[in-house]
Design a protein around this nucleic acid. Structure first.
Length: 111
DNA sequence: CTGATGACGTGTG
DNA sequence: ACACACGCCATCA
């Protein structure tokens, strides 16, 4: 069932689940993919209710900075998860961000 | 309906 | 390169 309160959220969740392991994407990229390119805030906000099915830890800001690290439990820190996937993280910032950046608009011809 | 908030992005000084 | 301001849009009080 699609509820008006979650239609936008589900879209974000769907794209987030499509993020390949070892890759990361930005809010703006997802926002643009959904059509709300001007509202990267909404993407992050939607992920605020990130269900366990959504690898929200793979979503960072344009700088490759883990702005959402404080939203993750210390038991499963965002950095640890990213590092565990082979992503190098230093000081809450992803290294080689441009190389592991995954853009749904370029990688996904469909949707 | 109005105002405020938010895991951002881009532009300007 | 850094700091500040504006925009954009959805949700909540």
């Amino acid at each position: 069932m699609k509820k008006s309160a979650t239609s936008f959220f589900e879209d974000v969740y769907e794209v987030a689940r499509l993020i390949p392991e070892g890759r990361v994407t930005s809010y703006g990229a997802i926002a643009r993919f959904l059509g709300t390119r001007s509202s990267a805030r909404m993407v992050g906000w939607a992920l605020n209710g990130c269900p366990p099915d959504v690898p929200a830890h793979r979503i960072v800001n344009r700088q490759g900075l883990l702005t959402a690290s404080h939203q993750f439990p210390a038991s499963d820190s965002m950095e640890s998860r990213l590092k565990r996937e082979g992503i190098e993280v230093l000081n809450n910032q992803i290294r080689q961000f441009s190389e592991i950046f995954w853009d749904p608009n370029e990688e996904l011809p469909f949707k």
